[in-house]
Amino acid sequence: MTAASANFGDWMKHVQSMMEDTLAAFLPSPATVPNRLHEAMRYAVLDGGKRVRPLLVFAAGDLFDADTKTLQRAAAAVEMIHAYSLVHDDMPCMDDDALRRGKPTVHVKYDEATALLVGDALQSQAFIVLAEGIEEQNSSAARRSSMLALLAQASGSAGMCGGQAIDLASVGLALSLGELERMHQLKTGALLRASVVLGGLAGKALSVAEMAALDAYSAAIGLAFQVVDDVLDATADSATLGKTAGKDAADNKPTYVSILGLEESKTLAEKLRNDAHHALMPFGEKARRLREIADLIVQRKA
């Protein structure tokens, strides 16, 4: 199924189903020693989540006619990094949450030491999966290096981990809007950008203009994702979210809602959706799936 062959809902379900099978295949078997660690890794990744990052990989890959098998590996790698971040974020030393994707968090289901190792192992597994995939693609050494470096940077102190460090250090502080945006550009936006660019690189080496357009799109959806998360945290219940609602306010964390207010935050999310659409104009109709994902991010209810 290509990006142009079905309506968005059907395409999304197809990618989500395919990625469930792909992730199950690329994760170690629970029959393999160490059995409990492998079981917990699969618990953390499988049977849950909207798979927004794999959807972005496939939408960008369709834009550049990328090979499906390469996209599967890139999408699996990004989703494993994302899952590892959630496992660690939920631990008592960080956000201390008991619910994720409608089920007990990994440290609650297993224990804290296992949760720590699950995150570590998923990070390693992500790079194994991505490296094997781009070797199979027989792409140039420069492209292989770019893809691995991109995921590494998006995951580390200059990306997701750095954003989480700023988040933890900001509890109880009055951040400016610019400081809040910087934190979320790293914590959430870096891995979303990596998803988009990896999808593009799976198809071809990107031109300067193409990279600039994808960067502008990624920046808009990255901030929009967090703005909507903050709105939902303030307005939805735990059953709807699949995680503990109202936790940001309870933990005295700075959010878009705490700085801008609820209505202005909703207005900002809509502006960012429009910015994302505008960034894709050079690609024309072929970028329809990326536009629809921007709509999904802003208009979601959970």
Rank of each mutant, 00 (worst) to 15 (best):
T2Q: 14
T2E: 14
T2H: 13
A4W: 10
S5F: 06
A6F: 12
D10I: 14
W11F: 15
M12V: 12
K13V: 02
V15H: 04
Q16P: 00
S17M: 09
E20W: 08
T32Q: 14
T32H: 12
P34D: 11
H38S: 03
A40Q: 04
R42T: 02
V45I: 06
V45N: 05
L46M: 08
G49A: 08
V52I: 15
G61V: 06
D62A: 15
F64Y: 12
D67M: 07
T68I: 13
R73C: 13
R73A: 15
I81C: 07
H82E: 01
A83H: 00
S85I: 01
S85H: 04
L86M: 01
D90N: 10
C93W: 04
M94P: 07
M94A: 11
D97N: 12
L99K: 03
L99G: 00
R101P: 04
G102N: 04
T105I: 05
V106A: 14
V108H: 10
T114R: 08
G119V: 03
G119L: 01
G119T: 03
A121K: 00
Q123G: 00
Q125L: 11
G133Y: 09
G133V: 10
I134E: 13
I134G: 11
I134F: 14
N138R: 13
R143H: 00
R144M: 14
S145V: 10
S146I: 05
A154Q: 05
A158T: 11
A158R: 12
G163V: 00
A165F: 07
L168N: 10
A174I: 07
E179S: 11
E179V: 01
M183G: 02
H184Q: 12
L186N: 02
K187C: 02
A190Y: 00
G199Q: 08
G199L: 07
G199P: 07
G200A: 11
L201A: 07
E210F: 08
E210Q: 14
A213D: 06
A213V: 03
L214C: 08
A219L: 13
G222H: 02
F225Q: 01
F225L: 04
V231W: 00
V231K: 01
L232I: 06
D237V: 00
L241C: 06
L241H: 04
K243G: 01
T244W: 04
K247M: 12
K247S: 15
N252C: 12
Y256D: 03
L262P: 07
E264L: 10
E264Y: 04
E264P: 03
T267Y: 10
K271E: 14
R273C: 14
R273E: 10
L280C: 05
F283G: 09
E285Q: 12
R289Q: 08
E292Q: 15
I293K: 04
A294S: 14
D295H: 09
L296P: 02
V298I: 05
R300E: 02
R300K: 09
K301D: 10
K301G: 06
A302C: 11
